[in-house]
Computed example of a mutant assay.
Amino acid sequence: MAQETILLVDDEKEIVDMLDIYLKNDGYATLRAYNGAEALELLRAHNIDLIVLDVMMPAMDGIAACLEMRKTSNVPIVMLSAKSEDMDKILGLSTGADDYVTKPFNPLELLARVKSQLRRYKRLGVVQPAESGVIEVDDVVINTATHEVRREGRDIKLTPREFAIFELLARNRGIVFSIENIYEKVWNEPFFESDNTVMVHIRKIREKLEDNPRQPKYIKTVWGVGYKVDG
C-alpha cells in the first residue's frame, strides 16, 4: 500500500522538523511548506492525503490558504494556532478545516488527530455495501460511493466532516440528532459541552446548500433538541 502523504505548513521550522520526525516514524511521507502560498503550490503538484496547517504565517496565512484549498480540494485539514479562544476555533473551522489544535500541543495528540482524520476520509471514500448508494433529499442527491453532493445538477463541495454530518442526518430522515450525538458519531470522540464545532459545521453546510441559510429547507433545527432532515 502506498504511503500516505502529509503536508506540513508552518513558518516555525522547529515545529515542522518535530512533526516530520513523528510522522515519518509512524510510516507517513511528508512535504513541507512555510507559508500558505507554498502550500497551495504543493497541493496542486502532489497527491496529498492530509494537511497540517498553521494559522499565523507570512505571505499567506492559514485562514486564507484554507479558503483557497477548499475551492478545489476536500483533503482533510488539521489547523494549528496559538490562539485558544472559541471564536478563533470557530473561524478556523468555518473556513473549512476539519480539526483544530491549539499550540503548544503534544505531538502524540496531533498524530492521533491525523490518524482519526485519515480513517474518516478513507471510510467516506470507500464503497461500503451496507451503506453505499444514493440518498435523495428533495432536489439534493448524495452519492455515498463517490462522496459527492449535487443540487439541481450543481456540485456542492462539502468537506469530509460536513459530508459525514449531512449523510448521517439524510440517512436517518425524520430522526432528531442532538449536537452531542452528531459529534460522537461523526468525530468518534467524547463530546465536550462547550464545544461549538457541530454548530459551525451545520452553518457551513447550510451556507453551501440552502437558498436562504436563515430559513433552511434541508437541515432543520429542532429547538432545544438538535437537528434533523425531514422524512
Rank of each mutant, 00 (worst) to 15 (best):
Q3K: 12
E4F: 00
T5Y: 00
L7W: 04
L7I: 08
L7F: 06
L8V: 02
L8C: 00
V9E: 03
D11N: 13
K13Y: 06
V16D: 04
L19D: 05
L19W: 04
L19Y: 03
Y22D: 01
K24I: 07
N25K: 15
N25T: 06
G27P: 05
T30K: 03
L31I: 06
R32H: 15
R32F: 02
Y34D: 02
Y34P: 01
Y34R: 04
N35F: 00
E38T: 02
E38A: 12
L43K: 08
A45T: 07
D49S: 11
D49Q: 09
L50R: 01
L50A: 11
V55R: 03
M57N: 07
P58S: 08
P58M: 06
M60T: 05
G62N: 08
A64K: 11
C66Y: 05
E68C: 07
R70A: 11
R70L: 06
K71C: 01
T72R: 11
T72H: 15
M79N: 05
M79E: 08
L80T: 04
S84A: 13
S84Y: 08
E85V: 06
D86Q: 13
M87Y: 14
M87F: 14
D88E: 13
L91D: 09
L91G: 06
S94N: 12
T95M: 11
Y100A: 04
Y100W: 05
T102W: 03
P104W: 09
P104L: 07
F105Q: 01
P107N: 07
L108F: 14
R113A: 01
R113I: 10
K115E: 11
S116K: 09
S116L: 12
Q117V: 02
R120S: 13
Y121L: 01
Y121Q: 05
Y121H: 13
R123V: 04
G125V: 00
G125I: 00
E131D: 08
E131I: 10
E131L: 12
I135T: 14
E136D: 11
V137S: 10
D138V: 11
V140Q: 04
N143M: 05
T144I: 08
A145D: 15
T146V: 04
T146Q: 13
H147S: 11
E148N: 08
R151I: 10
R151H: 05
E152I: 01
E152M: 06
R154N: 12
D155M: 13
K157S: 09
K157L: 09
T159W: 00
P160N: 01
L169M: 10
R171Y: 12
R171A: 15
I175A: 14
I175P: 01
F177H: 01
S178G: 14
I179A: 07
E180S: 09
E180M: 10
N181C: 04
I182V: 15
Y183G: 02
Y183R: 02
Y183W: 05
V186A: 09
V186E: 02
V186Y: 06
W187C: 07
N188R: 14
E189L: 14
E189K: 12
P190S: 10
F191Q: 04
S194K: 11
D195S: 15
N196H: 14
M199Y: 07
K204M: 15
I205D: 09
K208R: 14
L209Q: 04
E210L: 03
P213L: 08
P216V: 10
K217R: 15
T221Q: 08
T221G: 01
V222N: 05
G224R: 09
G226E: 11
G226D: 12
G226Y: 06
G231P: 02
